[in-house]
Design a protein around this nucleic acid. Structure first.
Lengths: 202, 202
DNA sequence: GTGATTAATGAACACTGTGTCCATTATAAA
DNA sequence: TTTATAATGGACACAGTGTTCATTAATCAC
């Protein structure tokens, strides 16, 4: 994966990566050209093609990087543990770790997932959450008859929800700590959104 | 809004609109050019510019159309009604109407929100849901101290969730009826995702 | 139907960006 | 210091853009 790279190559890739994020922030992801990138990075246009096929290729490499980082964390999450912690009024630690990752990489995620960013990245994250949940939840519900909602539907719901949840946090200045985030998500997951926001049975 | 249009103009716009959806289906949204569109629609390239500024402009006009359609329905939704219906084991009719709209326009939504589609459209829909919820939910929670999760956070969660829910349905062949969809969403909203999928307190 | 109106066409224009060369220069590694 | 190779600058043909304009064709109002 990580071929041993010449310093020069590392530097070039680093410059391109920075130029990419800057350009998204400045003029939005759509319509970034190779010429834009090399101008901003102050490198020769031909040099770009020594590393990437085109702008989409550069984007996909960046996406893959962060995808890996996320996978490493998400693969350890256990919905059963979340439910257990929630029913005992505790916070599931796996969630805290997940939000700590987003917090640490916030600069990148904020731009990339923001209004000017690249939404295919959002899709990738959602799909990742979804796949992992599928593995975990499938085990639990096989053979049961009392499920009110098919697991695949529910997983689609939750995966989108959790991404939207993080996104909102990123785009409103990250006012809560990762632990507070986990606490809130636990409430919503356990009680359901309606009761979590204060609707009361009467 | 709807200026009285020459038949020729209507026809041109119709052709462009069909070409756009076809091209997304065939080669993906990214990288569709004006030349692609006019070739596919069999019209003169110059003609395109008599109607739209560029590809993004065409896209935005299409988005706006469906946005209007959705607004008309979403603006009538009442979370309170949803909670009431849910606690009585009923289905909230507003939701059924919403899903009927997606069902009727499924061809367009499926392509546009699909893997090759335009994700800014997904964002627009999410924002629409979010804004409307904000209006409704804000009334309920003002002055209350017992909310476990701030309304804005919860709304971000729900808006994303509901979009993901519909998206999954569109992309898995629309196996459920709008009423069944509404039923499922009601369960999730009322019980929370964990209990809805079958986790049990013990 | 006829004539006035206006949309669509085809062809040209300068311009920007693409992807690929290649000889030359600069820099890192052994 | 030598050897390897990354980066450069300049060139190339090509595709797409956005605009203009005279010409053709369709529609609308009468």
């Amino acid at each position: 994966m990580t071929d041993k790279l010449d310093r020069r190559q590392l530097k070039t890739k680093q410059l391109l990566r920075e130029a990419f994020v800057k350009l998204i922030r400045e003029k939005g992801y759509e319509g970034i050209t190779v010429s834009d990138l090399t101008r901003k990075a102050n490198i020769n246009r031909g040099t770009f093609y020594l590393h990437y096929k085109d702008v989409l290729d550069l984007r996909d490499h960046l996406k893959a990087e962060f995808h890996q980082g996320l996978l490493a964390i998400v693969s350890h999450l256990e919905p059963g543990e979340l439910f257990k912690a929630a029913s005992e009024g505790k916070v599931y630690d796996g969630l805290v770790r997940l939000y700590e990752y987003f917090d640490a990489q916030a600069d990148f995620f904020e731009v990339m997932l923001g209004p000017k960013g690249d939404l295919t990245f959002a899709r990738l994250l959602k799909d990742t959450i979804e796949e992992r949940m599928n593995e975990k939840i499938a085990k639990i519900t096989t053979g049961r008859k009392d499920v009110l909602v098919p697991p695949d539907v529910l997983i689609a719901y939750m995966a989108s929800a959790q991404l939207g949840f993080v996104l909102h946090w990123l785009q409103t200045g990250r006012k809560q700590s990762p632990r507070e985030l986990a606490q809130m998500l636990t409430h919503i997951m356990y009680l359901g959104p309606l009761k979590a926001v204060g609707f009361q049975a009467n």
